[in-house]
Design a protein around this nucleic acid. Structure first.
Lengths: 353, 353
DNA sequence: ATCAATTCAGAAATCGATTACATCCCCGTT
DNA sequence: AACGGGGATGTAATCGATTTCTGAATTGAT
């Protein structure tokens, strides 16, 4: 009878072969001693050895759920992002993973696909799951959803986008300066009719990049060409449509500043469809330096964000806050750098002539 | 005294405001009744209502760790992949997420960066974490690491790469047929000196794609040009180096078949650096249809894998196996499709003339 | 009206690891 | 020799939700 019970429970326990009790029995000590022996309490050497041997023989793995319950906390970090398929976020995740893994935490990942409802649901799931901390990029439409978790005292770090007036640590990049540098570069090459395709202004990154665009004109003593600023969502199709429209205007822009990687791809598609030459007919600068940027012909001039480092910083900040919850709030802003390739007619291409 | 104890414990519990006990007290019932009322047991209507109100008033969230401990299983699925920054895997994850989320599970994600040691460590972490199931793409060098988890009865699904002789469910794509179609396409356009840059043969996808390459030649009654097959790792730089070397040979290949997305990017870089024209000087076919493929000039002809669907299938299979552990082992092979664009001189480009 | 059957709430056991507390033993000191 | 202190071990409580078991109450049937 105990035999059969035993077997059933092992199977239902998803691969748990034995508990601390079994180890204790085999080693001839109490469970307390086993626990102490395995997690660094003071235990007589010979007993410790016996325990360790028993544990190995039985392939003992402490049950995480029991441990979490007792400890009142988990070793998992939640990551909530708008779009896993966007390589920028992928790199961020990669950076987070690196740091978090090294610290012995696991990563719970959720993708809300820019949908505020899913964002809310996933947030609730993370809360229920009892994550030790959360790294997130909000959809920005309703950041108040995050309030309950903040009040619950769960450490959180916002990444890339500023989450309204939530009081949390933040890691962002110098969007305004990056955009300014990109547009200034175009202006320096003689462009005046420079269009910008941008995401929704409700998202802080879009707003900041637009400010950079405007500042570049103001710095150069030029009027900001408001009619050349187009807003759409951050997807490739939207960028394609927006740029197609721009390029079919009677006075076509001579250059395009695309405010994100997917918008850049859409823009390129539109340019190619009209059989225009880059940079002779239209120059283009992108945002985000992706793996494919230098494989384009001509290679793409773009504003690079240190995505990996964004992830790493966020993870480090989160771990620090988990250890010391009461330190003052911090905001880290990482540099962006303009990478000049050939898609504006400067750099490599001109150097070649 | 109870006051201060209370406060400490709330903080240390990471945002847990109240337990089932508090709800029971407030509703004037026992904890058993609360549990039943909230999870569909039979409870008198008025009591049920009182419990639900109390739970809402106190913002009660059942502690997941306690639940997991009691249930002997978790609601998390582990995903172990070689490289998050590879868009193919990102899409797979996206597909997995979609299905798993809908079923009320969470995703534990880990990236081992093609390093077998990390693979082993992460696998152990997943095992300890008590995941309800695992979806993985193995590094293939030492699949025996997975044996303990299999023996422990944890449901597993292998994705994309065949994991040696592990007895697990599998989801792959028709690599051989995809590669054959791609190379046959090139042969049909008159190419004979077709090079292949491929990943390490130890990886099943690389081996299968190579078989497809060879078959295309054999089918056409041609000799397989062994000297034009180059192996390297799956990264962009490796592809760049390999193709640079190929193109500098005295009798340069007239076409290139790149067996993965990153290798394709490397190949493009090399082609551009030598200022060769696509498809006039070199034709190219890639593997994997990425977002950027149609924004290239000329747009890339490539073998598309249904990455999202791979993820979805894997997730569905895993969930099914979690519910019915004893069904026979299954292998799903999804179709690949050759997407003809202009990088080989066929399709759009020729249609235009 | 009485007894059986059925329903439903509560008390208590349970999951597995950790840890506060009690106990025991050994050694040193007076 | 007796007492005290310190270190190590075992016992049992604990974490929070679920579930079995028990007892009570209600319903229906005769």
């Amino acid at each position: 009878m105990p035999e059969s019970t035993r077997r059933r429970s092992r199977a239902s326990r998803g691969g748990q072969f034995c508990t601390i009790k079994d180890v204790a029995e085999r080693a001839g000590v109490s469970t307390a001693t086993v626990s102490r022996a395995l997690s660094g309490g003071s235990v007589r050497e010979d007993l410790k050895k016996r325990v360790i041997e028993a544990a190995q023989a039985l392939k003992f793995r402490p049950n995480r759920a029991a441990r979490n319950l007792r400890a009142g906390s988990t070793r998992t970090i939640g990551v909530l992002i708008p779009d896993i398929e966007n390589p920028f976020f992928t790199s961020v995740i990669c950076g987070i993973e690196e740091v978090v893994q090294a610290a012995g935490y696991s990563l719970l990942l959720a993708n809300f696909n820019e949908s505020p409802e899913r964002e809310r649901a996933l947030l609730a799931a993370f809360h229920a799951e009892g994550v030790a901390g959360l790294i997130f990029t909000a959809s920005c439409s309703l950041t108040s959803q995050y309030q309950p978790m903040i009040e619950a005292g769960i450490p959180m770090v916002a990444v890339s986008r500023l989450p309204g007036r939530l009081k949390v640590d933040q890691v962002t990049v110098a969007n305004e300066e990056g955009a300014r540098a990109a547009v200034a570069h175009l202006i320096g090459l003689g462009h005046k009719r420079i269009a910008m395709i941008n995401g929704p202004v409700s998202v802080s990154t879009a707003e900041e990049r637009q400010r950079g665009y405007e500042r570049a004109f103001l710095d150069a003593g030029l009027r900001v060409p408001e009619d050349l600023i187009v807003h759409c969502d951050f997807r490739q199709n939207a960028g394609f449509a927006a740029v197609s429209e721009l390029l079919e205007r009677s006075r076509r822009p001579t250059a395009i500043f695309a405010a994100s990687n997917l918008l850049t791809l859409g823009a390129l598609e539109a340019i190619h469809q009209l059989d225009l030459k880059i940079p002779e007919d239209v120059a283009i600068v992108g945002f985000d330096d992706m793996a494919w940027a230098k494989s384009l012909r001509p290679p793409l001039t773009t504003v690079a964000q240190p995505a990996l480092e964004v992830g790493r910083s966020a993870a480090r900040m989160l771990l620090e806050r988990i250890q010391q919850p009461d330190t003052p709030r911090r905001q880290v802003v990482l540099e962006t750098t303009l990478i000049v390739r050939a898609s504006c007619g400067a750099g490599h291409a001109s150097a070649k002539t």
